[in-house]
């Protein structure tokens, strides 16, 4: 059977299969892909998409003005809380919970060391960067940029580990685990005492070695 025949069959059969194409899954079942385009009954032209109005449209009701299109719906507090995970330098957004260096040490060995090394030195084959060391190298020929030597805020460590690590199971750490593994990294870096329990309160006392290491953009007007 030639390609040409098959293609004609495909194109023409499409016109003959409206019932199948309309067989859309129940709205709540996850979809694997878009349904086939439904041909219009008379002409067989593909049905163009119509606008979808999903929410109740409770926000405003004055279409056509620069604001208040009445489009979308209010985000609920629960919806926001479910994804509002950012942690800011002043501690805004810190999760409830706490963690110790000792707990972090065990967790790091189990969940992080394969990619970042037992001694936090990085593992090139995995792309997992070195996490500590490198102080006093930033102005040299070979700067070593790590959490210890370069990162200006401890909030960034907590935020990043919480959202994106471990790389093979991002978002899987509990708040306590994030605090623990952060306490371990900061402890190894000599930034946080190994006996300090990391939580929202002790966080406020952390001073990162390179906190003053950043300047604003002088461009335009300079290279």
């Amino acid at each position: 059977m030639s390609m040409r025949e098959l293609a004609i069959a495909g194109a023409i059969a499409l016109a003959g299969l409206p019932a199948l194409a309309e067989d859309t899954p129940a709205t709540d079942a996850p979809r694997a892909f878009a349904a086939a385009v439904v041909p219009l009954p008379d002409t067989g032209e593909p049905t163009p998409p119509s606008p979808v109005i999903a929410g109740g449209g409770e926000v405003g009701a004055t279409p056509g003005l620069e604001r208040d299109f009445g489009i979308g719906r209010p985000a609920t507090e629960d919806e926001i809380a479910a994804i509002d995970i950012d942690v800011m330098p002043d501690g805004t957004g810190l999760m409830e919970g706490s963690g110790t260096y000792a707990a972090g040490e065990a967790l790091f060995a189990e969940r992080c060391a394969a990619c970042h090394g037992e001694a936090l030195e990085g593992v090139k084959a995995t792309g997992g960067p070195r996490l500590i060391g490198g102080r006093d190298t930033l102005a040299t020929e070979k700067p070593v940029k790590t959490v210890e030597s370069y990162w200006p805020y401890a909030s960034t460590l907590i935020d990043y580990v919480h959202r994106a690590m471990p790389m093979d199971a991002p978002g899987s750490l509990t708040a306590d685990e994030v605090y623990a593994v952060s306490a371990f990294i900061l402890g190894q870096a000599g930034i946080l005492g190994k006996d300090v329990t990391l939580d929202a309160e002790s966080f406020g006392k952390i001073v990162m070695p390179n906190a003053e290491g950043f300047v604003s953009d002088p461009r335009p007007g300079a290279y």
């Binding site: 950012d86 800011m88 330098p89 930033l138 102005a139 700067p143 940029k145 959490v147 370069y150 990162w151 200006p152 805020y153 909030s155 960034t156 935020d159 990043y160 994106a164 290491g213 950043f214 300047v215 604003s216 953009d217 002088p218």
Partner: peptide, 20 residues
């Protein structure tokens, strides 16, 4: 002050300071 705007995408100058 996310990871990408501090640890990455900052420009280290010869004096050891980085532009953010």
């Amino acid at each position: 002050m996310t990871r990408e705007e501090t640890s990455k995408y900052t420009d280290l100058m010869p004096d050891g300071k980085a532009r953010i």
